[in-house]
Design a protein around this nucleic acid. Structure first.
Length: 488
RNA sequence: CGGGGUAUAGCGUAGUCCGGUUAACGCGCCUGCUUUGGGAGCAGGAGAUCGGGAGUUCGAAUCUCUCUACCCCGACCA
């Protein structure tokens, strides 16, 4: 194994793969496209999960759990939905194996199921089949349910965290009595996603509406958060869908209004997945590996003791103890690395793992009653008096969190361009980056641009201003100002 | 599904063309001693039926057939 990482600017993809591997985040599972999330990666997911779980509970949502298996017939009930997911479903056809003298085990043909079972690619259908039973009156609304679950989408080409055949996510499924309330819910959730991305993952996002060709299969409108990765490509980091009455219609979910009329229920669904971890890696990583935002980092401060012998080690422990006690009780996530590796090895190792702050303590520091703090984001080295360690660490963690967001935002803004014509458009897309420009609203034009440049409309941003803009491709008056980019 | 490729120790590879002792090397791993402020050193050690099956041969990692798995490129995608 070579010591350095592949050059980020040269081979971003190889760099990503190695960071995931060497930071100990995840590994490939035995079945193609599956992912084993290793403890360090899973702690990252748990921190993201806890953060968002708290946010949705504070806004009145509750968690529940629906089954992994869905009757095949359910998927056919919503025409667009089946169209969107049919090509990537894992299907259960049998329920038994039997031993075979030649092949070890074979599927027992006698156990063939009457109706095949689908492994959920998303849970709208099961959930709405249940909502039909649960919703009768306007008094039963709204239903604000979320679930943390795994889903399976049989993708052709996979990459750890960004696209795996099974992934973890949360999916919210809400039911409302009015279209206005459903729309508000869709947008409120999108705002929570923005906060999660920007305030916790330090990943700046554009918020906006998806075009028809990019929206969720079965939705009326899909809103999204879109981020720029370190190679200037776009990553869809979360989506929130206004499903209108489509699923209520498909599953016959109606309710009685106050004035005794029967109406179809209005629905939303929304999700973010383990892909967010991919977003963090691709946004903040550098040539030394991962850089984790302190708020979600499994370890916020790693302590590297430097000792020559056992006596010194004991002395060091005594010196460190009051500090680590104080840090722990203040909720700072610390880890002391007492392994026998050399300091240099440890520095590199923990930089790879993206720990925001490193604290070095050795004989020199004991003498001077100090510790050495080194920032992962800027490599800056600080000599801190032992009495003000907690205070300094808390401030530094805050500062690192902000700095990562600022750096990512600057990078995104520098690489978001306005262009004069289609030639320039193609040039920017080729170089990498976002293009903010006019579009006539025609999905055929969008498809043509995709064919010619591989760029797609990432979103119609909320703050669009199409006044005076012309369509980048046709020169007609622009219907929308949109963001184009090549996406993951 | 189309087109190309790979399979040798935990990982990365050499050896395969042109068959010939005990299958080699680096990293990692284990034991011991010495080390420790930017990827430590020395000594000893464990670990491989060369992807599976069949064939050719006195002899196969190496040649032939076959099966399987994985990787890369395209169409699909949170």
């Amino acid at each position: 194994m070579s010591k350095g990482l592949p050059d980020r600017s040269n081979d971003f993809s190889a760099w990503y793969t190695q960071v995931v591997n060497r930071a100990g985040l995840a590994d490939h599972g035995p079945v193609k496209g599956t992912m084993v999330i290793k403890p360090y990666g899973f702690q990252l997911w748990e921190n993201i999960k806890e953060t968002f779980d708290k946010m949705i509970k504070e806004t009145g949502h509750v968690n529940a759990y629906f089954p992994l298996f869905i009757p095949k017939s359910f998927l056919a009930k919503e025409a667009e939905h089946v169209e969107g997911f049919a090509k990537e479903c894992a299907v259960v056809t049998h329920t038994r194996l039997k031993s075979d003298p030649d092949k070890g085990v074979v599927v027992d043909p006698e156990s063939k199921l009457e109706e095949e079972i689908i492994v959920r690619p998303t849970s709208e259908t099961v959930i709405w089949s249940m909502y039909k039973k649960w919703i009768q009156s306007y008094r039963d609304l709204p239903v604000l349910i979320n679930q943390w679950a795994n889903v399976v989408r049989w993708e052709m080409r996979t990459r750890l965290f960004l696209r795996t055949s099974e992934f973890l996510w949360q999916e919210g499924h809400t039911a409302h009595s009015t279209p206005e309330e459903a729309e508000k819910e869709t947008l409120d959730i999108l705002e929570l996603y923005r906060q999660l991305a920007e305030d916790h993952l330090a990943v700046p996002v554009y918020t906006g509406l998806k075009t028809d060709s990019e929206k969720f299969a079965g939705a009326e409108r899909t809103y999204c958060i879109e981020a720029m990765m370190g190679d200037k490509r776009a990553l869809q980091a979360g989506t929130s869908h206004n499903l209108g009455q489509n699923f209520a219609k498909a599953f016959g979910v109606t309710f009685q209004t106050k004035d005794n009329k029967e109406e179809l229920v209005w629905a939303t669904s929304w999700g973010v997945s383990t892909r967010l971890i991919g977003a963090v890696i691709l946004t903040h990583g550098d040539d030394k590996g991962l850089r984790l935002p302190p708020r979600i980092a499994p370890i916020q401060v790693v302590i590297i003791p430097i000792t020559k012998n056992e006596d010194q080690a004991n002395q060091l422990k005594t010196y460190l103890n009051p500090m680590t006690e104080e840090l722990r009780s203040s909720g700072v996530r610390i880890f002391e690395d007492w392994t026998n590796n050399s300091p240099g090895f440890k520095f590199n190792e923990w930089e790879m793992k993206g720990v925001p702050l490193r604290m070095e303590v050795g004989p020199r520091d004991i003498k001077e009653e100090k510790v050495v703090l080194v920032r992962r984001d800027s490599k800056e080295k600080l000599f801190i008096s032992k009495d003000s360690v907690l205070e300094n660490i808390q401030e530094l963690l805050e500062d690192i969190q902000e700095n990562l967001l600022r750096q990512a935002r600057d990078f995104r803004d520098e690489n978001t361009h306005a262009v004069q014509d289609y030639t320039e458009f193609k040039e920017v897309i080729k170089q990498g980056g976002f293009v903010r420009c006019g579009w006539n609203g025609d999905s055929k034009v969008e498809a043509k641009i995709k064919e010619e440049t591989k760029a797609t409309v990432r979103c119609i941003p909320f703050n669009e201003n199409p006044q005076g803009l012309t369509c980048i491709k046709t020169g007609e008056e622009a219907k929308h100002e949109v963001i184009f980019a090549k996406a993951y």
